[in-house]
Amino acid sequence: MDEDLPVRLSGLRKRFGTSVALEGVSLTIEPGEVFGYLGPNGAGKTTTIRILLGMLRPSSGTARVFGLDSWRESVAVHRLVGYVPGESALYRRLTGRQHIDYFAHLRHREDDARGAVLAADLDLDLDRPAGALSRGNRQKLSIVLALMSEPRLLILDEPTSGLDPLVQQAFHAMLRSHTERGGSVLFSSHVLGEVQRVADRIGVIRLGQLIAVERLDELRAKSLHRVRASFVDPVPVDRFSALPGLQGLVVTDRTLQCSAPQWALDGLLKRVAEHSVEDFECAEADLDESFMSYYAREATDAS
């Protein structure tokens, strides 16, 4: 059954000398799924990715890609995977076209035409040497090289941090057509904003441990809204503190302030409307912010 599973990590641990980079990470990525892998720099995202690609040998646990062991069967894994490395390191003297040519030969595939089409979609000039390209253009070339072999799994290590919004849109369209064909994506980033438009699920890694895995639509539902209201007349506190789901509620004389998840808004609004309102404000908090505060709390509760 594992042959159909793009990624399965089981108790993955990695030590570098005395420091522990990963402490038992387990997760799976389903076919057709975009998995956003989030965490601050140094949390273990790149280590996980480089184990999946067979660059690093796990200290214990296993990493499987379509049922293949990422260390012992790395050549077979590489046939199924497209990879955008975090550094977007390229051969300085080779042009984009030469990169495409070289990797197509190493893969024994005729990918030159596909590579050229992808480059055109991203508005990338293939005739300049990589050393002369801007950071954004180097990332575009890395993306072209990863996608041109029509991989079943894309592994992207912070692929869009240097891309402008228009190019990001083109890139997201590429990811969608990739998943529509049944392809999967592991997309790492240190900000939720970078992956929230494309990811189906996200996992958060901190200090080498996966602290949360969440469906993005469920997370959205949990995301907090900041509500402020001021009233013509003083309002009683207990009318509001009885409402479920409100956080950080402050009622002083004629004003109200709180944070509320989506599902609690209806009840709150109805209660507010029972009084004469002078002003009302409701803004969705940054998903990033509510997400991090949510899991910061989880982590504190757990300890």
Binding site: L53, R79, L106, R107
Partner: peptide, 9 residues
Amino acid sequence: DLLLANPIR
């Protein structure tokens, strides 16, 4: 990394 990500021993 880029080189070894290809299916090559």
